[in-house]
C-alpha cells in the first residue's frame, strides 16, 4: 500500500484535531448536573472538581495506552500485541491484588509501584516466550498473548475469590472513569511525561523496529532500549489499571490506524498515535455517558465492543492485502 497523498493526509490531520477539540468540549459539558441551569460558582466547581479532571484523565490514559501499545509492538516486532494482549494489564492487576492483600494500608502510589513491578515481570516473560515463535506466523503472537493474559487473569480471579475480594477486582478489571475527581487522578500526569520521552526517542524506536542487528549496526544499545521500553509499557499500564482499571484495545488499534495514514517513521507519526489514543478513549467515554443518560456504561465495556469490531476489521483488511 502507498501512503495516502499529502492533501488527504493534511485534511485527515485537520479533521482529527477539530474532532478531538469537539470531543473535549463534549466531555466537559456532558454529565448528570446541567451546567447551564446551576449558578456560576457551582458550575465552576463541577467543572474544576469533576469534569475537567475526568477529561484530562481520559486524555492521559488514552494517549498513554496508545503509546504503550506502539512501544510493545515495536519491541515484539508484531503489530498485533498491546498491553491488554500480552499480559501487562493482567499482571498489573495481580500486583494491585498482591498489594491489597499483604499491605492493605498501601497508598495509591505504593500500589502503583507494586503493580508496575509485576507488570514489568509479566511483560518481560511474555517477550521472552514469544521469541520462540516463528516470525513467519504473525498471528501466533496475539493468540499466545490472549492465552497468556487469560491465564494470569484466571489466577488473579481465583486468588480474589479465595480472599473474598471479587468486588474489588471488578474495579480494576473493567475500566471506568466515573470515579475520577480532582485529587484522585494526578498520578496520570506521569503518562504525559512518558509520551514526551517516547517522542524524544522516536528515531531510536523506529530503528529498533528494524530489528536488533540494524539497531546495533547503527550504534544503538538495543538491550537498554528494550529495558527502557518495557519499563515505560509497565508504568503506563500499571498507572492506568490502578487509577481507572483495564481499558482494552486502545494500544492495539490506534498504532495500526496511524501506521496506515502516516507511516511508521515515529518522529512524524508518534504524536498522532498519542492524539488518536486520547481521541478514541474520549469518544468512547462520552458515548458511555450518553447512551443510558443519566446512567453510565463503563468505558471498558464500550471500548470492548467498539474495539473488538475495529480490531476484527484491521485483521480482515490485512488478510485481504496479503
Amino acid at each position: 500500500m502507498t501512503i495516502l497523498p499529502a492533501v488527504s493526509v493534511r485534511a485527515a490531520a485537520l479533521g482529527t484535531v477539530l474532532f478531538f477539540a469537539a470531543l473535549c468540549a463534549a466531555s466537559l459539558s456532558v454529565g448528570v448536573s446541567d451546567l447551564s441551569t446551576v449558578d456560576g460558582t457551582e458550575a465552576l466547581d463541577t467543572l474544576l472538581i469533576s469534569r475537567l479532571p475526568r477529561t484530562l484523565a481520559v486524555i492521559l490514559v488514552g494517549a498513554g495506552l496508545a503509546i504503550a501499545g506502539l512501544i510493545m509492538q515495536t519491541l515484539a516486532r508484531n503489530r498485533f500485541v498491546d498491553p491488554g494482549i500480552g499480559g501487562t494489564e493482567q499482571s498489573a492487576a495481580f500486583g494491585i491484588l498482591l498489594a491489597t492483600l499483604v499491605w492493605p494500608a498501601a497508598s495509591i502510589l505504593e500500589k502503583m509501584v507494586v503493580a508496575t513491578l509485576t507488570a514489568l515481570a509479566g511483560t518481560a516473560a511474555f517477550l521472552l516466550l514469544v521469541r520462540r515463535l516463528p516470525p513467519t506466523q504473525p498471528y501466533l503472537m496475539p493468540l499466545f498473548g490472549l492465552i497468556y493474559g487469560g491465564v494470569i487473569s484466571a489466577g488473579v480471579t481465583f486468588i480474589a475469590w479465595q480472599m473474598d475480594l471479587l468486588q474489588y477486582l471488578d474495579i480494576w478489571m473493567n475500566g471506568d472513569f466515573s470515579g475520577v475527581l480532582r485529587g484522585r487522578y494526578e498520578l496520570l500526569w506521569l503518562a504525559a511525561l512518558l509520551v514526551a520521552l517516547a517522542w524524544w526517542f522516536a528515531d531510536a524506536l523506529t530503528i529498533a523496529s528494524l530489528g536488533k542487528d540494524a539497531s546495533l549496526g547503527l550504534g544503538l544499545d538495543y538491550e537498554r532500549m528494550v529495558q527502557a521500553g518495557l519499563a515505560a509499557v509497565a508504568l503506563l499500564s500499571a498507572m492506568t489499571v490502578v487509577v481507572v482499571g483495564m481499558i482494552p484495545f486502545v494500544g492495539l488499534i490506534v498504532p495500526n490506524l496511524v501506521s496506515r495514514l502516516r507511516g511508521d517513521n515515529l518522529r512524524g507519526s508518534l504524536p498522532w498515535v498519542a492524539l488518536g489514543g486520547a481521541g478514541l478513549t474520549l469518544g468512547c467515554d462520552v458515548l458511555g455517558r450518553l447512551l443510558r443518560y443519566p446512567y453510565e456504561i463503563p468505558i471498558g465495556t464500550i471500548l470492548g465492543t467498539v474495539g473488538a469490531a475495529l480490531a476484527l476489521w484491521l485483521l480482515a483488511e490485512r488478510h485481504e492485502r496479503g
Binding site: 528494524l210 542487528d213 511508521d264
Partner: peptide
C-alpha cells in the same frame, strides 16, 4: 563500520 545483514524481514511503512 557498517553492516548490512541478509533481509531483515522488515516490510513496514517507511519510505
Amino acid at each position: 563500520l557498517t553492516i548490512m545483514r541478509q533481509d531483515t524481514g522488515f516490510a513496514g511503512r517507511l519510505t
